[in-house]
Write a protein that binds this DNA or RNA. Structure first.
Lengths: 155, 155
DNA sequence: ATAATAATTGGCATTTTATGCCATAAAACT
DNA sequence: AGTTTTATGGCATAAAATGCCAATTATTAT
């Protein structure tokens, strides 16, 4: 699918405010409501818009501590990986997990209330199958976070 | 503000789908529309719901490569930090930046189209004031990403 | 326990928004 | 230039949001 400038403006607006009404959105991108809604629907159908989510205040919800956990696996077979990944998927406090290049194998982002809770979670991670070499990096401050994707606006 | 189980269910639903209509939402949490809407508005006013954003398909938007960039600053004064942070805030391809404990000082998450574009961006980062010891970790695969926050449902 | 008070809820009326349809205008193609 | 295709804007209808008020539930004090 080829996106034009209007599509990019729509995506930009919805990245900034995913709950704009179609009327507001169409106004912001200088289009009348009907074609605007059609474009949004199509962007959703094509899988360019994956979804919409509310962004929540972690501190207010007792999840004020964020930790990046880098770790390696002892074995590197398919079985080790998939067992480890399945375990991680089942841990709700692990909100992201990437397979990465470099020294570590996996990089997890973990949210907890405080150090006490982190200690408990770390114990769980240590006991996961095949896990070796855990390094915790605590987030002291978010300089920038949840930024919109930079859209290369054409046309 | 004290949140009860209903609030938590509302937050859970809006994390999963930020564009639920109030009617749909009220149905999912077993409440009638009026009080449901009031609760949502209050959660927004209290800053517990920070906002709503569309989540986009990076590959479709030519941002298929994600890189974690860990780096240290040569100097650690207020001026070095704030100059560096300002620079990073101005780079749209850097979608997050955290001050972290451990070996590195800062951890950036960068999105680009491909290695060629990453090389250009890396050059820019290297030329930022006070930057030293850059380590790039390429994301090979996302095991888990953009997960909802784990809400400790009470009541 | 009971009564008084406060907070929350549910339903209704009104306003706003979403949605489907069609005629028109713009764009692409030959 | 003429034809076909695609996108647009406006309108009518359906759905949702919003504000208001009476009724219910929860809280507090006695």
């Amino acid at each position: 699918m080829k996106l034009d400038g209007l599509d990019y403006r729509i995506l930009d607006q919805l990245q900034a405010n995913g709950r704009l009404t179609n009327v507001e959105l169409s106004d912001k991108v200088n289009l009348s409501p009907s074609p605007c809604l059609r474009r949004v629907k199509q962007l959703e159908e094509e899988g360019i818009i994956l979804g919409y989510r509310a962004s929540l205040n972690r501190v207010a919800l007792d999840l004020g501590m964020t930790v990046f956990v880098d770790l390696r696996l002892g074995h590197h077979g398919d079985q080790a990986s998939s067992q480890f990944e399945a375990s991680v998927l089942a841990m709700p406090n692990v909100i992201s997990c990437y397979l990465v290049s470099g020294t570590a194998d996996y990089r997890l982002e973990v949210v907890v209330k405080d150090l006490q809770h982190y200690e408990l979670l770390l114990r769980q991670i240590q006991m996961l199958p095949f896990v070796k070499d855990i390094h915790s990096n605590f987030v002291i401050r978010a300089v920038k976070g949840e930024s919109p994707l930079p859209l290369n606006t054409p046309t």
